[in-house]
Amino acid sequence: FHVTIHVGDITFHIHGVSEEEVKKLEELVRRGADWREIKKTIEEIEK
């Protein structure tokens, strides 16, 4: 999957994300995680 996440003024683009990881990111966004937490999760996914 290709994912784009907008957190305030920050936009993250992630490529090659599995469905499971998409759900993890959706959950973070849904519970209102700040951009640092989302960035950390994205960095883990990209490894």
Rank of each mutant, 00 (worst) to 15 (best):
Val3Lys: 02
Phe12Asn: 00
Ala33Tyr: 02
Val3His: 07
Asp34Pro: 09
Arg31Ala: 14
Glu43Ala: 08
Thr41Trp: 15
Lys47Asn: 12
Lys23Leu: 10
His6Cys: 10
Glu46Pro: 03
Arg30Gly: 10
Glu20Gly: 08
Lys39Met: 15
Ile38Gly: 00
His2Ile: 14
Glu21Ala: 15
Gly32Asn: 07
His15Thr: 13
Glu26Ala: 08
Glu26Trp: 09
Arg30Thr: 09
Lys47Val: 07
Leu25Tyr: 02
Ala33Val: 07
His2Ala: 10
His2Glu: 11
Ile10Lys: 14
Val3Pro: 01
Val29Thr: 04
Thr11Tyr: 11
Ser18Asn: 08
Arg36His: 14
Ile45Ser: 02
Glu43Trp: 06
Val22Ile: 13
Ile5Gly: 02
Val3Ser: 03
His6Leu: 09
Glu44Met: 07
Gly32Trp: 01
Ala33Ser: 05
Ile45Phe: 12
His13Glu: 13
Glu26Gln: 10
Ile14Thr: 03
Ile42Ser: 00
Arg31Leu: 13
Arg36Ala: 14
Ile45Gly: 01
Phe1Leu: 13
Glu19Asp: 08
Glu43Tyr: 06
Glu44Gly: 05
Glu44Asn: 04
Arg36Gly: 11
Val17Leu: 15
Arg36Cys: 14
Glu44Asp: 09
Lys24Gln: 11
Gly8Lys: 05
Phe12Asp: 00
Val29Cys: 11
Val17Asp: 01
Arg30Cys: 05
Trp35Ile: 13
Phe12Ile: 10
Gly16Thr: 12
Glu27His: 06
His13Ala: 06
Glu46Arg: 10
Arg36Phe: 11
Gly32Ser: 03
Ala33Asp: 03
Glu46Gly: 10
Glu27Ser: 07
Glu44Val: 03
Lys47Phe: 09
His13Met: 08
Glu27Val: 04
Gly8Glu: 05
Val22Gln: 08
Gly16Trp: 13
Lys40Asp: 11
Glu27Asn: 06
Val29Met: 09
Glu20Cys: 08
His15Pro: 03
Gly16Cys: 11
His15Met: 11
Ala33Lys: 02
His15Phe: 14
Arg30Ile: 11
Leu25Asn: 00
Glu44Trp: 05
Glu27Asp: 12
Glu26Ile: 10
Lys24Glu: 06
Val22Asn: 04
Glu44Pro: 00
Val7Asn: 06
Ile5Phe: 06
Val17Trp: 13
Glu19Ser: 11
Phe12Tyr: 12
Ile45Glu: 01
Val22Trp: 14
Ile42Val: 06
Lys24Ser: 06
Trp35Phe: 07
Lys40His: 08
Ser18Cys: 05
Leu25Gly: 00
His6Met: 12
Ile42Gln: 01
Thr4Lys: 06
Phe1Trp: 14
Ile38Ala: 01
Leu28Asn: 01
Val17Ser: 03
Glu46Val: 14
Ile10Trp: 15
Leu25Gln: 00
Ile14Gln: 01
Glu21Tyr: 14
